[in-house]
């Protein structure tokens, strides 16, 4: 690991000043991804600005009836919060489906959104990777890509975003708030991750040196009946091969409101808006769920070894929406 300087920020403005939008500086929160990448030599910062003392570890009601989740709230505290469990149960389920109890205690909400892909080529310094070394190529295209993207990828990168939390946040229209030396800003999570195109190394819409301060969830009555289901290669403590955050409000047998977001299929949590449009106002039946999934997955471009994800996501949509509708009928 490269030697680095370490600074503790007293508050948000102090953190921004210490960072100074400098290329070689990284903010340190839980460190569960950053420190690991530093050990691997993928991240080689000259200095870290530790955010541990920032007052961003609270979950508060917003004036509009939503929740404002501070950027340094731990995954554990987010998942355990009574109002998150009551109003957005799929968010609690998504967070609890990720990592382990130890890592959830350390990891933070802001860090979760900024974590890097777990594509094995990204951390293998001996192999090309356009995300790590722009212009070097993509080893996954003709290599191991069973768990890579089927939606929104490009010939330059087919890596998936590993977050579970982000999938539920995307389904519920979360907005990312940040601060820069030039003032505050915000961006919907749906627009937070940049299209892959030929710049897979440029991942987010955050300005240089920006610090995420909070993630805001607007009120969403439909989210009270929601579910996150994660499919993985073992029962626990593994990244998804496909996941779904879904919320459903059925009235008189018809879909009044629905939210769907896919995980582990793209470079970002994938809001399935085509599927939502196909369902809204129509019958709440398994046939309709399948047709809606097909509408979303029509854009899928699977690689030779990950075509199973198309079927997997279709089946997930049908299964989870069916369960949610049955629950509502009880």
């Amino acid at each position: 690991m490269r030697e680095f300087g370490y600074l503790r920020a007293p508050d948000v403005s102090g953190a921004l000043a210490l960072h100074g939008a400098d290329d070689g500086t990284r903010f340190l929160a839980g460190g569960t991804n950053l420190v690991d990448l530093m050990k691997a030599g993928v991240e080689r910062p000259e200095r870290l600005v530790d955010l541990a003392e920032l007052p961003l570890d609270r979950i508060e009601e917003t004036a509009g009836g939503g929740l404002r989740i501070g950027a340094t709230v731990s995954n554990s505290d987010l998942a355990a919060h009574p109002e998150v469990r009551r109003r957005y149960p799929a968010l609690t389920q998504a967070v609890l489906a990720g990592a382990s109890g130890q890592l959830r205690n350390m990891a933070t909400v802001g860090g979760n959104l900024l974590q890097r892909t777990r594509c094995a080529y990204f951390t293998d310094l001996a192999r090309p990777c356009n995300k790590r070394t722009p212009g070097s190529g993509c080893a996954a295209l003709r290599g191991e890509h069973r768990n890579h993207a089927i939606l929104g990828a490009s010939e330059h990168c087919v890596a998936v975003h590993p977050s579970d939390m982000g999938v539920a946040l995307t389904a519920f229209d979360a907005v990312v708030a940040y601060e820069t030396l030039d003032g505050p800003g915000e961006v919907p999570l749906a627009d937070f991750y940049l299209p892959v195109g030929d710049t897979p190394h440029a991942e987010t819409a955050l300005p240089a040196g920006a610090l995420i301060t909070a993630v805001t969830l607007p009120p969403a009555p439909v989210a009270a009946r929601s579910r996150y289901r994660k499919v993985r290669e073992r029962a626990s403590y593994a990244f998804a091969i496909g996941s779904l955050a879904a919320a459903l409000d059925v009235r008189d047998g018809r879909v009044h409101d629905v939210r769907l977001a896919f995980g582990a299929v793209a470079s970002r949590p994938w809001r399935a808006r085509a599927a939502e449009r196909a369902l809204t106002g129509g019958p709440a039946t398994a046939e309709a769920y399948a047709a809606a999934a097909d509408a979303e997955l029509a854009a899928a471009e699977p690689l030779p070894d990950n075509g199973y994800k198309v079927t997997l996501m279709r089946n997930l949509v049908v299964a989870v929406l069916t369960e949610l509708a049955e629950e509502a009928g009880r």
């Binding site: 370490y6 460190g31 420190v35 870290l48 554990s76 205690n105 350390m106």
Partner: peptide, 21 residues
């Protein structure tokens, strides 16, 4: 998880915890 310790009463993996932090 072999390196699990309690930090402020909560479990954490000490291999990803920088000592200075």
């Amino acid at each position: 998880g072999a390196c699990t310790v309690l930090v402020d009463g909560r479990r954490a993996v000490s291999c990803l915890q920088l000592a200075v932090a």
